[in-house]
Design a protein around this nucleic acid. Sequence first.
DNA 1: CAGACACTTAAGTGTCGACTTGACTTTCTG
DNA 2: CAGAAAGTCAAGTCGACACTTAAGTGTCTG
Lengths: 116, 116
Amino acid sequence: MLNHEPADRVFHALADANRRAIIERLTAGPAAVSELSRLLGVTLAATVQHLRVLEDSELVRSEKAGRVRTCQIDPVGLRRAEHWLHAQRTTWEHRLDRLGDILGEPDPTTFKEPTT
Amino acid sequence: MLNHEPADRVFHALADANRRAIIERLTAGPAAVSELSRLLGVTLAATVQHLRVLEDSELVRSEKAGRVRTCQIDPVGLRRAEHWLHAQRTTWEHRLDRLGDILGEPDPTTFKEPTT
DNA sequence: CAGACACTTAAGTGTCGACTTGACTTTCTG
DNA sequence: CAGAAAGTCAAGTCGACACTTAAGTGTCTG
């Protein structure tokens, strides 16, 4: 089941607490890899691996100047995830609305939810 | 790093394409476990395991009547995930706004981003 | 009531993912 | 220029995870 859909990558990236901590830090402004490494309390190598995941899912961008790589938020991934969730929630809510309309109608012929 | 934060659970649940497919199906209305199983093309047992993850993260609720368990969306998890993403994005956007204000000011004393 | 249905639980398997250590490369700085 | 700083790359370890099969448990239905 090794999918490479964008949604897979984004949600998988967000599933890790350390990666979310990186994102939370970066919303406050850019940071170097070593700073993030200190923040998480893990090795530089581990941090770099997290950043690779975050960049692949377009949640973070980074550029290297001299010997320091500076990371910042990439809004693309964030928006993609937000959009999927919003779509699900609104679809669900609209369905409930329609259901309410039907149940509130003056002539309620016995209504049954189709399951198949 | 086996965290049990709610955000961990929700995003981890959403990271799997089959679980997202279940959610997408349920936004259209309730469904039985065996129907979801058919939809995914995996074993009933596997489907039950996915549902356990989805229920633990409050993305799905289910009730058993007779021998059939009916599943439906639980908005709690969806909202939780959406809220986290929204918070990150807006924090980031507001920071950019403030940055724009500063850079657009009449007396721009040489501005340097604090990194530590 | 017998057999089909709709799950449920347990155990096993192969893969992935988060870390680590250790060996480099590149870029400052005293 | 020597050494420190900041990353980078490559293994290697070990626990999680998505499946499966197999053996149940209740609940209809003819």
